[in-house]
Design a protein around this nucleic acid. Structure first.
Lengths: 348, 348
DNA sequence: GAGGTCATTGTGAGCGCTAACAATTCACGG
DNA sequence: CCGTGAATTGTTAGCGCTCACAATGACCTC
């Protein structure tokens, strides 16, 4: 059944058809208690017959609530941001809110400002920004906006409310796992300096080594892409036999590149070098070898983020601290432990 | 600068401040020609000073246009849907539209219906559905909705307007590439029967073989996941030496699983078995070996989809056929051609 | 300088809904 | 059979904007 392009019926039309006032129709739709059952039934039948739907704009104008939230994101084809976006939308919908998304190619001051303007013109009541880069967080802190903003993935240290996974803890889990397996030291391929998460993971790695009395080796940097991991992997391969036996890579995609470079250099994983990633993308289990990694609970991030934003919108004191941290989880696979199970459950 | 929670200024407030009527303010905002420069400047200054922003709901109510589009999607953490979503949002924003997204876990009749309701309550003027499954397309065709709907990825054969990549052509490119390389026949690991794209790719594969006078071998099925590819790969490994030298896998993730299973079975790629995937996810270049695959232009899909929807909304005759097909592109890498370049440009 | 034209600005009436209040109806005890 | 309070329904007035039209004024032309 396709759509029709006639002028849609209004509440008044329904009221006439049902023989009541428009206000009674409004009451029925609003689930008000004081409506006689017979009346309610008549109204509902009229609504059904006419295919009536409440006009969003009129309602929003009268109530001064659009029940719409905005989300600003970037890199939405990456697993992490995509998962976060999904979780946010789902959580918001569960609360009866609509979500308008703006996906940016780059999170610059300018593009962020335009995104907020665009959403503001769209009447959003609040915005969640998936802003993993420090500069984006700073920009957000500086920009004026007539609604509350919650940052997801921004890390601590700003005065904007936010939710994120505890990256430092994740890095400690990864690094500690490698040390516990007997490695003397752990190398680290970090993400871009600009990214808060990259900084937190690097800090967690460094702190773990230092508490274990180990001098951290040289830190490598990539840009999250498999290619940058591949390049770093080629460099790392040169250190094998000179103290390099374990690498903590700041995300799974770069770890994929590292694995390939090591393989091409004749370095075996995990026998010669153990590798740990971060994110637990769906493919990680099928890398060669399956990748030990750190899983983040994006769904929890989404729920908490929306909850926090709604508290701010309602003017309630937030139910949680203004900065929520979600606990990540280590997933052990064959890239650090040759006896880890195969994808289908059989041992290697 | 955080937000403030005072009652925001209205157009009338601005008008008073600027010493004009509210209508003049409206004209300035609407870029109407007939406003004296001095007046316009005064109004703009007042707007700036008061931090005025036009009220979205009032505007939408008066114009009967929300300038909001809806998108219904599922599996948004997969590369294809995520890319499509991104492209749609970007294209819509370029046209000045806001995009409200609903991401579903499953595309059932019920969830689709709820999604359309949700968007309808949100006042969208039209909806793009990323509906790669046949049942979803059928459901969409049956559901009532007071706005136009465009389907993306649904394939031909329905009476709903839509845009999709020419999957049949993509499959012909992949299969033809393998035949041209001298393979006697090509096996196929297909996606779920339910998916239109899976059916189209299988048909393209079958047609190519048949036009070459080759009897298509047994068809295997997976569910797009690496795990299902891994399982199928184990089965395929059993056919090596009995006529199996080339496999066309319906997506890159399953191809990843196939590669792993083959490797574990001691089968070399591409020397013993050549493998082609579909999608060209960013990781494909870093698989072991780098994967030959078919690239889809999601950005074009997004642009065309939005253009088509806007035509429908405006009541214009669509600028293009009601079903647009975008051409895919073969990307040759080492999984079919051992001399293909390395990620960093050096030959293998 | 009367009359006409054009550019510029103002006025009034909605858009379709909800909130606040007013009016009506009903049940029931005295 | 009437009064009383509660339940139910109706009436009115915006919400903040745009549209259609009216009004004003500036500028020409003859």
């Amino acid at each position: 059944m396709a759509h029709t392009r006639l002028r849609p019926p209004t509440m008044a039309d329904v009221a006439r058809q049902a023989g009541v006032s428009h206000q009674t129709v409004s009451r029925v739709l609003g689930d008000h208690p004081n409506v006689r059952d017979a009346t309610r039934a008549r109204v509902l039948r009229a609504i059904e017959e006419m295919g009536y739907r409440r006009n969003f704009s009129a309602r929003a104008l009268a109530t001064r609530r659009t029940r719409t939230l905005g989300v600003v994101a970037s890199d939405t084809t990456l697993y992490g941001p995509a998962s976060t976006l999904f979780a946010l939308e789902e959580a918001a919908r569960a609360e009866g809110y609509l979500v308008s998304t703006v996906s940016l190619r780059k999170l610059t001051m300018e593009s962020l400002s335009e995104a907020l303007d665009h959403l503001s013109e769209g009447g959003v009541e609040g915005v969640v920004a998936i802003a993993p880069q420090r500069s984006a967080v700073d920009a957000l802190a500086e920009l004026r906006h007539p609604f509350p903003v919650v940052i997801v993935g921004g890390g601590p240290g700003v005065d904007i409310a936010g939710v994120s996974v505890d990256q430092h803890l994740g890095a400690r889990l990864a690094t500690g796992h490698l040390l516990a397996a007997g490695h003397r030291t752990v190398w680290h391929l970090a993400g871009p300096e600009e990214w808060q998460e990259a900084a937190d993971r690097a800090a967690g790695w460094r702190d773990t080594l230092e508490s274990a009395g180990v001098e951290p080796p040289m830190l490598l940097r990539g840009d999250w892409s498999p290619l940058s991991g591949y390049r770093a992997g080629q460099e790392l391969a040169g250190w094998v036999g000179r103290g390099l036996t374990a690498v903590f890579v700041a995300n799974d995609q770069m770890a994929l590149g590292v694995l390939r470079a090591l393989r091409e250099a004749g370095v075996r994983t995990p026998q010669d070098v153990a590798v740990v990633g971060f994110d637990d993308i769906p493919e990680a289990e099928f890398f060669a070898p399956p990748l030990t990694t750190v899983r983040q609970d994006f769904s929890a991030v989404g729920k908490q983020g929306i909850a926090l934003l709604l508290d701010l919108i309602e003017g309630r004191p937030p139910a949680t601290a203004p900065r929520v941290a979600i606990e990540p989880q280590l997933v052990v696979r064959a890239s650090t432990f040759p006896y880890a199970a195969q994808p289908d459950g059989t041992p290697l």
